[in-house]
Structure formats: C-alpha cells, structure tokens
C-alpha cells in the first residue's frame, strides 16, 4: 500500500511538471492553432538560465528561500522574453501562411535552439548546485523531499494564477475570444497581436519555471537537449487532455506523470514510454478530441 501511495506522489509531482509545460503548448495552440515545437527548448533554457545565475552569483554558498525565488523569477523572465522574441521573429511574419509552414518553422526554431545551445552552452552536462537545502523527513513511511513539495505547491499556485488570468482579466477574455474566432475578435477591436505576445510570454514563463525547478531539485544533468523528451511528453499530455483546453493540459500532464510512475515501477519498466504513448493512442481512438476536448466535426 505504502508503495502505491509513494508512486502516486512521485507521479503527481512529476506530472505537475508536465502540466506546467503542457499548458504552454495548449495556450499557443488555442490562439494560433500552432504546435510550438520550440516550447520544450524554452524549458531547457529555463534550466540553463538558472545554472548561470546560480554559479555566476555563487548563490549556492548561501542557500536560502530568497535566493531560490530570485533564481526562479529570473529564469521565468528570461524565458518569457525568449518566447516573445520567438513569436515576433519566427511566427508573426508567417501568421497568415498555410499551417504547415508554421509547423515547419516551429521545428526549425526548436532545432535552432538545441544546436545553438550546443554552441553557446557547450554539450557537456552541467549540474546546478543546491540553492535551497532540501531535507527529507519520512512522513508515515512515505518519503517526500521538500523539493518535491515545493515543486508541487509552485505548480498548483501557477495554475491558479493562470486560471485567474484567463478567466477574470481583460487579457484572459481577449485570449478566449481569439481562440474562439480570431477574425471576429479582431473585428471587435481586440488587440490580437498584443494578446498573442502575452500568451507566448505566459506559456514560456511557466515552462521556464518548470525547467528551473526540475534542474534545481532533482540534481539532474542539464544539456542543450534537456527539453527534448519532456517537451514531447508534455505535448502528448496536452493532446491527451484535449489540446487547446487549459484544464485538459493540467489533467493530461498529471495523468502522464502517474502512468509513468506506475509503469516505471512495475515489471514493465523497459516499456514505460511505449505504454505512455499507447495510452494516448487508445484515448484518442475513444475520444478524438482528448479527455476534456470537444470533438469538432470538420467540414471537408
């Protein structure tokens, strides 16, 4: 029983990271019908910004909550800026081009970031020294590190803030209007460009936060290809939940995390990724729009 509970915690915690990345995919898809393949690389960028801030300012010598928050905010800000720049330079000039053009551009931007990362950051792995002492105390036989608690709490907090922004602000209303019908929104006097810029900024900041937290708390090696697999899996999570639907992305991400944890801990551990993707196929066969997505009949 304890093992199952522990796996559930592992899964929910890691799933919350997928959820943070998946939200960015789904928001951009919502407004532009574009799958932003460079999104996973923004996650990588978040980890590298954290690495350079921590080692550059020697923050690991005085681990504290303040330092952690500082690094988190810098990573999010740089990633938001990167997201805005990518949209401005790569996606806006081709906004009215066929959708395939945008898709290929997105793949190009992703490759540019990965290989540019190899040139700028170097291909050898880096480790972020601890900025926040994360001790572990067993609670009723379960082992949950403070890092895990912080990651989960931060993810939930970010989701709540996002929900508030999307549901209760003018910007959120603009985004929802655009995702419903971009041309009608423009006719209604909504500044579409500004709303799209903000969407990229918001999604990229969340991916940056995810990258920073994973790199800081799991003491994993970071490389320029750090975002490749999490990016793909978060994209799958977004599709699983129903792409374009924010609560769907969160649900999809957490489900993905839980599935991975249980399969990874079972006898089928070698097939972990295969099973995660198989579940996606099954869900899409039963519900083509994803779990929370609406099935849209397209006229041909």
């Amino acid at each position: 029983m304890e093992v199952y509970l522990q796996q559930l915690i592992n899964g929910v915690q890691y799933g919350s990271i997928y959820a943070l990345i998946a939200v960015g995919y789904t928001m951009v898809y919502g407004v532009l019908r574009l799958i932003n393949f460079a999104h996973g690389d923004i996650y990588m960028l978040g980890a590298f910004v954290a690495y350079y801030v921590v080692t550059g300012l020697a923050l690991h010598q005085h681990p504290s909550v303040g330092n952690f928050l500082f690094v988190l905010i810098v990573s999010m800000a740089v990633c938001a800026l990167a997201g805005v720049l990518i949209e401005r330079l790569a996606y806006r000039p081709i906004r009215n081009a066929p959708r395939l053009t945008a898709l290929i551009t997105a793949i190009g931007v992703s490759l540019l970031l990965e290989n540019g990362g190899i040139v700028v950051f170097g291909a050898d792995p880096k480790y972020i020294p601890t900025v926040l002492q994360s001790s572990v105390a067993p609670r009723g036989g379960l082992y949950i590190s403070e890092g895990q608690v912080i990651m989960l709490a931060a993810s939930v907090l970010f989701m709540l803030i996002l929900r508030f922004i999307v549901m209760s602000t003018r910007f959120g209303r603009a985004v929802r209007a655009i995702s419903y019908d971009i041309d009608a929104a423009r006719l209604m006097g909504i500044d579409v460009d500004r709303a799209i810029t903000l969407t990229f900024a918001l999604g990229s900041a969340l991916a940056g936060a995810a990258g920073m937290m994973v790199a800081t708390f799991t003491s994993v090696k970071i490389t320029p290809l750090f975002g490749l697999l999490p990016g793909v899996k978060a994209f799958v999570a977004a599709v699983l939940g129903g792409i374009g639907n924010i609560p769907g992305a969160v649900l999809g991400g957490i489900l993905m995390g839980i599935i991975e944890a249980f399969v990874g801990g079972s006898a089928l551990t070698t097939y972990r990724d295969a099973i995660a993707f198989m579940i996606l196929i099954i869900v899409l066969l039963l519900r083509p729009g994803g779990i929370l997505g609406k099935a849209v009949v397209e006229k041909v």
């Binding site: 592992n10 750090f226 991975e260 944890a261 249980f262 990874g264 801990g265 551990t269």
Partner: peptide
C-alpha cells in the same frame, strides 16, 4: 530489475519499487 533511459530526470518510480 528496473530500467531507465539516458536523459531521464526522474528515477523515483524505479527506486520506489526497488526500495519495496
């Protein structure tokens, strides 16, 4: 007997099963 792939950031699922 558990497995992982190079580049995975999280090994807690496998380790939890190993611990059990």
């Amino acid at each position: 007997e558990k497995s992982y792939s190079e580049g995975d950031p999280d090994f807690r699922a496998q380790l939890t099963a190993i611990k059990a």
